[in-house]
């Protein structure tokens, strides 16, 4: 229990490191210095000391959105194990609850966006739910495939026993990587640094938040990235590494940072997809997960 608590707290503390790592990798590819690794922490500290500006057209939903979104990710993180270890809370089929906690956060973010009545937020929200509706089945089917392969239904044992050498795990890993990029607003789906409001998906929904709300939104998104990276690391990490026991989740953290590195490389090398094609790529992820499932069922 204490190790799980320690893992949970480590995730909460280290999540803001991920955007720094990704930015540094991208800077390396570009040939520039890049922002400091701890930039996200500095941003959070500053945001917490700023006030917010609220439009007279918004209601309590606008203020509730960031709080619920962040809280739901924190709750989902409690279900996520670091590679090879236990999670704070686990029970059979807990991954379904995980998926729906994330969906709950997304739902409130979308509601808050629609509450503003602005067309950009509306467009961002419609794109977000459209793609999420395609990505969620891939996540669930992929984890089900792993459940079938390992014979267990709770996340810690699912991820603990999955081996990347098995074809199911490799396929599920590929599918999860694609959905990770989509859910976390990364290239090729979305450009987190874009200044083009008509192309934004996730960023468009949060254009109107400022101050503490924005801090919660940013922190929530980094926690979500950590969560997804931990899931992916759990699937792709060799079983031998997962069995190493350490008081702190060293292996898990390394796995997450390796995924962040991979995200940085992908973002530096390919262009964004035209939004029309995003469903095709998500369908590919679903297909990969389906094949993994079928392989397990035969």
């Amino acid at each position: 229990m204490t190790t799980a608590l320690l893992d949970f707290l480590t995730a909460l503390a280290l999540a803001p490191l991920l955007p720094g790592v990704i930015a540094r990798v991208k800077a390396l590819f570009a040939g520039r210095q890049g922002p400091p690794l701890l930039q996200a922490y500095f941003d959070l500290c500053k945001l917490l000391r700023k006030s917010g500006v609220y439009s007279t057209a918004t209601t309590w939903i606008f203020r509730a959105g960031p709080i619920v979104a962040c809280a739901s990710v924190v709750a989902a993180l409690a279900l996520t194990p670091a590679a090879g270890r236990t999670a704070l809370i686990s029970f059979p089929a807990d991954f379904v609850l995980l998926a729906y906690l994330l969906a709950c956060g997304r739902f409130f973010t979308v509601l808050a966006a629609l509450d503003t009545g602005s067309s950009f937020e509306g467009m961002g929200a419609s794109r977000e739910v459209h793609y999420a509706a395609l990505g969620e089945p891939a996540l669930l089917l992929g984890l089900l495939a792993l459940a079938r392969q390992t014979g267990t239904m709770s996340l810690p044992s699912l991820l603990g026993r999955a081996s990347p050498l098995a074809p199911e795990a490799a396929l599920v890993g590929a599918a999860l990587f694609i959905v990770l990029l989509c859910e976390n607003a990364r290239i090729p789906f979305d450009d987190p640094n874009t200044h083009l409001e008509l192309t934004m998906i996730h960023e468009a929904m949060v254009l109107d938040h400022g101050g503490v709300d924005l801090a919660l939104i940013h922190y929530g998104s980094w926690l979500k990235l950590w969560l997804w990276s931990a899931l992916l690391a759990g699937v792709l990490m060799p079983v031998a590494l997962k069995t190493i026991v350490t008081p702190v989740p060293l292996v898990g953290v390394t796995g997450v940072l390796a995924v962040a590195l991979g995200i940085g490389v992908v973002e530096s090398c390919i262009a964004r997809l035209r939004l029309l094609r995003v469903p095709h790529l998500l369908a590919t992820a679903l297909a990969l997960a389906a094949v993994a499932f079928i392989l397990g069922v035969r």
Binding site: A30, R32, I270, A271, R272
Partner: peptide
């Protein structure tokens, strides 16, 4: 143009 489609290499180099 490269930056508008999220392609960072050309964006970075051409800016310089």
């Amino acid at each position: 143009l490269a930056g508008d489609v999220g392609f960072l290499p050309t964006l970075s180099y051409c800016g310089r």
